[in-house]
Structures are given as structure tokens and as C-alpha cells.
Design a protein around this nucleic acid. Structure first.
Lengths: 245, 245
DNA sequence: GCCTATGATTTGTGATCACACTTGCTTTGA
DNA sequence: TCAAAGCAAGTGTGATCACAAATCATAGGC
């Protein structure tokens, strides 16, 4: 019987080869736009055009328009009555609204994670803490993008442990929505001698490692509140300036 | 100066005319599919094809594929690795997951609404309660669709008062995701002599009218838990049957 | 000089076509 | 008789075209 031998042969080949994956152009465009939005590459109120993005990404309009449609439904972008699309502007109400939603949902996610993380998973996030300190020690000209990426990985590594397939996409949507706002705040931070972010992360990890859900939630809320509060103050003083002028 | 007169004239005309709206085909397709999903017209695990839907809706494939893409990003539909799309199947984990998320977010929304609703808004939902009783009294062959629609209006009328532009789309997404599950439960309910839904709604309105956020939240959670719990039991006994067979 | 109207350009939307991949059935060969 | 190869129908994806609406610029009139 040849069959079993052929089967075995195929299996050894399969073990050595890594699946090639069949990502569509649309998926790549979508991911790229997500990355740009969370990273704050687009500024609030900026208008995006299908053809402009298609040219920038070197594709046709088709994948771009579908990606834009998806981003609009998750409120990462906004469809104006003129049918043009822009990244949502920052308002005081929106900042408070986003912060409340993020505290609620990410708080719930981390509380769940606190009761479910095993020691290996905790070790992973602890290692990321180390990475963070390391980068900080080197202090190579404040690489904001790397810091932001690491921060994102840190949070989502934890959220993934909550075991909820419903909450995680919602958190991603919230990050997408708050991305442009946060980036504005981060830049302002970096000018105004920022406070120690690592401190909050350390208390999060500490709470997780002793399975203290409530403490983890509180530490997380403190962590994500900081840039929002900063941005809030900045916006309020700016609007006062505007009134005075 | 004619200008002011013309302006006035235009305004009086504008006051009499109702905006015609420029809904695109894509929007209509999207709304229609949403309605179908929340209403449970599609059953869990059912596969949907672009061309099939386009034929059913009498349009081309273009609006349909964009609408499907949007529904996939909000997890109302599921993209299989084969690139075909289906409505997500029901599992026990998913039921618990959805119920937890809905309790959390809709609970927060109603708690916010409880502190913000004015007497006119409360009167509106009270009136809906009356409508409900009325329909119930007539008892015309248990019009499940009308009941479901009224139930949806009742809930969203309240949620709209929470004043959060972030929470409401999330709630809509959750209804979209739980629509197919709920419908299965509702049908089972109607077979198994259902309990009094109106009771829960009455206690919700009572809590709202005395601005008791905590009581409103609890009543709401009890209301939305019921079909989920029912479905959960049904699924568990079904899987036991499956094992026995 | 400022406002209004007319034209050109840009932009989103929908339809159609071409292509690649999947799926299911039929046929063929051992 | 059964399994594998091959063929055909179906399906998603991306590109291009046609059209309508919006935006912008320029010219004309008060």
C-alpha cells in the first residue's frame, strides 16, 4: 500500500513549509489604515479621499473604498453628508465619552484577565515591562513610535487573556477611535517632560500577578486616564485662549 | 435689500419640506441586512453569497459586497478561510460572552440614561409600555416580529438618552451579534408558554422615573438575561441529547 | 468691490468585466 | 468497485468605466 507512505511524505513536507497565507489587497489596505490611525499618522478632522489613498498605497480604488467603509462602520472614520470621509475631530465631549467607554470595557477585560492568566502569560507581560525599562534606560532620543507600539502590545497581550471574543474587537475599535486623540496628547507630553508611564504598568503587572482584579482595574484606569486628562486640559485652555483672542 | 426677504422665503419653504435624504444603494442594502440579522431572518451558520443576496435585493454585487464587508468587521457576520461568509454559529461560550458584554455596556448606558432622562423622555417610554400592553391584550396570534420590533425600540429609546455617541454604536453591534441567537430563543419561548416580558419593562421604567440608576441596571440585566439563559439551557440539553444518541 | 452664476475638475457610487480559486460532479483507469 | 484525475459551474476579488454630485475657480453683473 503506497498510500500511507505518500501520506507520511506529505506530512513531513508540510511540517517544514510555513503556510503562505492568502491576504487580500483589501486586508492589507485595511491593516495599513488601522496602523496609521492608531499611530496617529492622520490628524483629527483630516479629510481622506479614495483616489488619494489608492495612489499613496499604489492600488486601485476598489480595495481602498471597501477598507474605508469598514473603518466608517467602526467609527474610526466619519462619513460627512457630502459623502467625503474624514478622521473624527476632537471635542471635549468625545474625549470624556471615549475615556468612559475605555475604562468600562478595558477595565472589565483586565478584571477577567486577572482571574484567568497563568504564570506563563504573566511572565510574558513582565518581560515586556523589562523591555520598556531597557528602552527607557537607553533613552535614544525618545522614540515615540516604538514606545506607542510597545504600549499597545502590552495592553493587548493582557486583554487577549480575558478570553472574550466579543470584548476584544470592541477594545480594538476604541483604540482606533482614540488613536488620533491620544497621539496629539502624547506629542504634547513629550514636550512637557512626561511623567513615568512605567510606574502604572508596573502596578498593573503587580496586581495581575497576585490575581487582584480590582487593583488591576484601578491601575489600568489610572494608566489610560492620564493622556485623556492631559488632552482635556490642553483643549480647555486652548478654547479659553480662543475666547480671549 | 432683497436678500433678507429671499432668505426668509427660503426658510419658510424649508420648514414645510421634509428633507429627501440621499441614501445610497449600499446604505439600503446594509440596513436591510442589519434588519434581517437582528430580526433573526438568517439562521446561525447559514452561508451567504454576494450574488445570491444581490439577486434577492435586486441590485448588482457591488453594494452587497461592501455591506457584507462592513457587517464582517462588526462581527455580525463571519469570514471563513474559504472566503465565504456565514452568520456566526451559536456556541455556549459565545452566548455567555455576549450576555456578559451586553450586561456591562447596556447596563452602563441605562445607568447613565437614568440620571439624564427628562420627564418628556420618560413619558415616551412609558407610552411604549402602554403600546406593549395593548398589543398583548389584543393577543392577535402572537405577532413575534412586532413584539421584537417594539422591544428594540423600547430599549434604544432609553439608550439614546445616555448621551454617549461611543456606547450606542457598540450596543447596536451587540444586538447585531446576538440577533440570530435571540431569535432562536424567542421562537422557543413562544412554544413554551413564555413568561411576562412586560413585567421587566415595567420595573425598568419605574426605576428610570425615580432616577434610580442601580435599580434600572439590575432590571435591565434581568430582562436581557432571560432569553440568553433560556437558550443556554436549551443548548445544554440538546448537546446532552446529542451525546446520548 | 462684492456677490452670483457658469464652467471645469475632482470625487464617490454603481455596473461590468476579467481572473483566480473553490467546489462538486463526472469520467477514467486500476 | 472505488479512488483519483479532470472538467465545469459558481464565487470572491480587483480593475476599469460611466455617471452624478460636489467643489473650486473664473468671469460677469449689480
Amino acid at each position: 500500500m503506497q498510500k500511507a507512505a505518500i501520506e507520511r511524505n506529505n506530512e513531513t513536507i508540510a511540517a517544514q513549509l510555513t503556510p503562505v497565507g492568502r491576504e487580500t489587497v483589501q486586508d492589507r489596505v485595511y491593516s495599513e489604515l488601522r496602523r496609521a490611525l492608531i499611530g496617529g499618522l492622520f490628524e483629527p478632522s483630516q479629510v481622506l479621499t479614495i483616489r488619494g489613498l489608492a495612489d499613496a498605497l499604489i492600488t486601485s480604488t476598489m480595495p481602498v473604498r471597501e477598507a474605508l467603509g469598514r473603518l466608517i462602520t467602526e467609527k474610526a472614520l466619519e462619513a460627512l453628508p457630502n459623502r467625503s470621509v474624514r478622521v473624527p475631530p476632537i471635542t471635549l465631549e468625545r474625549i470624556d465619552d471615549l475615556l468612559r467607554a475605555r475604562s468600562l470595557i478595558e477595565g472589565e477585560a483586565i478584571a477577567l484577565a486577572a482571574t484567568r492568566m497563568n504564570s506563563r502569560q504573566i511572565a510574558t507581560v513582565e518581560a515586556m515591562l523589562g523591555q520598556w525599562d531597557e528602552m527607557r534606560a537607553l533613552k535614544h532620543k525618545k522614540d515615540i513610535d516604538r514606545e506607542a507600539t510597545l504600549n499597545q502590545s502590552f495592553h493587548f497581550e493582557i486583554y487577549r487573556c480575558c478570553g472574550s471574543a466579543v470584548l476584544i474587537p470592541m477594545i480594538e475599535s476604541l483604540w482606533l477611535q482614540s488613536g488620533p486623540c491620544i497621539r496629539v496628547a502624547i506629542y504634547a507630553f513629550s514636550d512637557a517632560g512626561e511623567v513615568d508611564t512605567a510606574h502604572y504598568h508596573r502596578s498593573i503587572v503587580a496586581a495581575l500577578s497576585r490575581q487582584d482584579a480590582q487593583a488591576a482595574r484601578e491601575a489600568l484606569v489610572a494608566d489610560i486616564s492620564r493622556p485623556f486628562a492631559f488632552l482635556r486640559d490642553k483643549l480647555q485652555s486652548a478654547s479659553k485662549e480662543g475666547l480671549r483672542a
